[in-house]
Nucleic acid binder design. Structure first.
Length: 558
RNA sequence: UGCCCGAUAGUAUAAUGGUAGUACGUCAGAUUCUGGAUCUGAAUGUCGAGGUUCGAGCCCUUGUCGGGCAACCA
């Protein structure tokens, strides 16, 4: 009932409205979308928005989505990227109807170009790129056509054929569409549609030495596949008239292009070029560095596909530029992990506690794996007379509202007993090295007979049973919200503290059984996942996200 | 100062001529064997000026601001 109501109240985004109208009017019986990555880099969370949109739309309206690699530039594209892109899409939870490549259409595209030449709508230009740029004019001055535009159809046909045969060097000639050099839309000023590149293509090898440009590949590929709704980002708005011009002139299937605003997230960058720089220049360890906004980085960081899909739902789809708060992404992952992550107790910065009234016998205590999941079960944790708690959970001179341990003060040890701090042991420098405490045997969790009420509950581990691990604490990659929009180079704004490594933390023994791909909540610390750098008994955990910390806020206010 | 796109709380996103709502964040409180989670409450918004209309966030005019377009990239 609640589910249904929510369904009704959920409003449509502008693309869904278009699709519903197209379906209602009978313009389309079903829809076909496509996700068209260029295999020249890894996917990032901005792509996830597009993926969720394209695949989500198709699945919502009973259509299909093609995965089509836009591989028209052999110089930058590699098979390695194809594989990572496929893996990321699958991981996000989507399956494509067909795996396709723009390069599958090179022959058809060539024929379409020939057709254009025959119609007198394309010509071979011998000018250099500088000359072409100069002749193009500026946004306020119209461009001028050069003498090559006057070549005969026969000559153009021959020259284009010769380009294809490899008779010319890179840059010697290009094929241009003959549109309108005076158009106020720069995209229409006789755009280049084919260029010569004697380069090895990751799929077609050395078969071709001429390659179509984006504008003469993308729309045509859409059309060949009968894509109904071709959804792209805003920077292609000005290309839409050209997209439509080609379709109209060639008389091919009329796919329609729609544009939405790309995702921007604060405290990071979202361009492949910039991300590649971070990787190449060693600011991060690779595309899957957990600080990267790449899908592979987020995955390694411990984000779940569900959380990313949930996030893309929450941010919506619109045409206005945006800068989304990282806190929303963090909310989405906490929301999911809180429900599914097993709890573990892990002490990062140990302070030893000796229970003076304890006989030293080891007792196994039970603790819920996940209080949010009634079927999550319990685990056993050893308790004995020597324990570690966090340094920061003790203060010799506590401020008001410090609900933790202090001389004479009581706290609950999670799933164990209430303890009281009786004595503080210090070294010669006056540093606290140990606490001597007493515990209330009748206060055991689950059967508390003590009648005591304490404010704070701490996580702890038994010294003798603790297992060690390394933790990597990640923070935002940049110190400023919008690094690309600051003065100077974006790299000047990298957060120097985006990674803090703690080589040795102390965990309850059960953490030994941790497996990769499973989330854990280190109680009161955050959500963590086992990193692939782990080996044998050297376990390494990545912090996915912290827990919300109300105490930190109180402290910060002084 | 060419053409195009856009402008609703701090950040996003609804309201499709008829009560400006939701989420995140923020603040306050309740509750809690995680200062987590949960629950309750609060503050904060239609870029400006005209116009059409009984009525405008929405339509029109105009201004302002932001973004895109002059790659043999996509």
């Amino acid at each position: 009932m609640a589910e249904i109501k929510r369904e009704e109240e959920k409003s449509l985004n502008f693309i869904e409205e278009i699709v519903e109208e197209d379906l209602r009017s009978g313009k389309h019986k079903s829809i076909l979308t496509r996700f068209p990555p260029e295999p020249n880099g890894y996917l990032h969370i901005g792509h996830a928005k597009s993926i969720c949109l394209n695949f989500g739309l198709a699945s919502k309206y009973g259509g299909e989505t093609n995965l089509r690699f836009d591989d028209t530039n052999p110089v930058t594209e590699e098979t390695e990227y194809v594989e990572s892109i496929k893996e990321d899409i699958k991981w996000l939870g989507f399956s494509w109807a067909r795996e396709l490549y723009a390069s599958d259409y090179f022959e058809q595209l060539y024929q379409l170009a020939v057709q254009l030449i025959k119609m007198g709508l394309a010509y071979v230009d011998d000018s250099s790129s500088e000359e072409i740029a100069a002749q193009k004019g500026t946004p306020t001055e119209p461009g001028k056509r050069n003498q090559f535009a006057d070549r005969s159809i026969e000559e153009n046909l021959l020259l284009f054929q010769e380009m294809k045969e490899g008779r010319y060097k890179d840059g010697e000639k290009v094929l241009r569409a003959k549109v309108d050099m005076a158009s106020p839309n720069m995209q229409m000023r006789d755009p280049l549609i084919y260029r010569i590149k004697h380069a090895h293509h990751h799929r077609t090898g050395d078969k071709w030495c001429i390659y179509p440009m984006y504008d003469f590949a993308h729309g045509q590929s859409d059309s060949i596949e009968h894509i109904t709704h071709s959804i792209c980002t805003l920077e292609f708005v000005s290309h839409r008239p050209l997209y439509e011009w080609f379709i109209e002139q060639l008389g091919i299937y009329p796919s329609k292009q729609y544009e939405f605003a790309r995702l921007n997230l604060n405290y990071t960058v979202m361009s492949k070029r910039k991300l590649l720089q971070l990787v190449n220049e060693g600011y991060v360890t690779g595309w899957d560095d957990p600080r990267m906004p790449s899908i592979s980085g987020l995955r390694r960081r411990g984000y779940t596909p569900e959380s990313i899909r949930f996030f893309t739902e929450k941010i919506g789809v619109q045409k206005r530029d945006n800068l989304i708060d990282l806190s929303l992404l963090e909310f989405c992952i906490r929301e999911h992990l809180n429900r599914i992550a097993d709890r573990k107790m892990v002490v990062f910065d140990p302070l030893k506690i000796v229970l003076t009234n304890h006989n030293g016998e080891v007792e196994m205590l039970q603790s819920e794996n996940n209080p949010e999941d009634p079927e999550g079960g319990f685990r056993e944790i050893p308790f004995s007379s020597e324990l570690y708690i966090e340094q920061e959970d003790f203060m010799e001179h506590p401020p008001k509202k410090f609900f933790r341990l202090a001389p004479g003060q009581k706290v609950r040890l999670k799933s164990a007993y209430i303890i009281q701090c009786d004595e503080v042991v210090k070294d010669q420098q006056g540093k606290v090295t140990e606490l001597r405490c007493s515990y209330l045997p009748e206060s055991r969790s689950g059967g508390d007979q003590s009648g005591m009420k304490v404010q704070g509950t701490l996580h702890w581990v038994s010294v003798a049973h603790a297992v060690t691990a390394e933790v990597r604490l990640y923070d935002r990659l940049f110190r400023v919200e919008d690094p690309s929009n600051e003065d100077g180079n974006f790299k000047e704004y990298i957060n120097p503290d985006s990674l803090q490594v703690i080589k040795q933390v102390y965990a309850e023994p059960g953490l030994r059984e941790a497996v990769g791909g499973k989330p854990y909540q280190f109680m009161r610390k955050g959500y963590f996942c086992l990193d692939r750098d782990s080996s044998g008994d050297n376990m390494i955990f990545n912090r996915t996200v912290t827990l919300k910390d109300a105490w930190a806020k109180v402290q910060n206010k002084g």
